[in-house]
Design a protein around this nucleic acid. Structure first.
Length: 111
DNA sequence: AAACTGACTAATA
DNA sequence: CTATTAGCCAGTT
């Protein structure tokens, strides 16, 4: 990575998501001081090593769904990790963000 | 240098 | 509900 500090800011925010809660990519971007750069959050998480202790599984997209990626098995792994933390998915594989989204400092007011 | 890619999101149609 | 478009910008070719 050409800019480690950028990723470290993202990782630091992700690390603050409590167990059993989730956050969105856009939310992480905002809290990392780079509003509107949700894609970069996904990119940063993608570059994590398997041995990393960053709770990457707690980041989902705005719909409360697990985002698609190259390796489809990772999607299932993420869901299992979240369910093990107590996060429930509905029949369509969606998380109720009104219940499980992490209310971090200065989250933009919903609705 | 230039084109391409992507673990995103919001706005339309 | 699905599909398309545009905005986004660090990495990779």
């Amino acid at each position: 990575m050409a800019n480690p500090t950028l990723y470290e800011r993202i990782y630091a925010v992700v690390h603050r998501i409590p167990r059993g809660r989730v956050a969105t990519y856009g939310q992480i971007a905002l809290l990392s001081g780079m509003p509107g750069h949700a894609r970069q959050v996904g990119y940063a998480l993608h570059s994590l090593s398997a041995s990393s202790r960053v709770p990457w599984q707690r980041v989902v997209n705005r719909e409360g769904r697990i985002s698609r990626r190259a390796d489809p098995t990772a999607e299932e792994r993420q869901r299992l990790l979240l369910e093990a933390e107590g996060v429930r998915f509905d029949a369509s594989g969606r998380i109720d963000l009104a219940v499980y989204q992490w209310r971090g400092p200065r989250l933009r007011p919903k609705q």
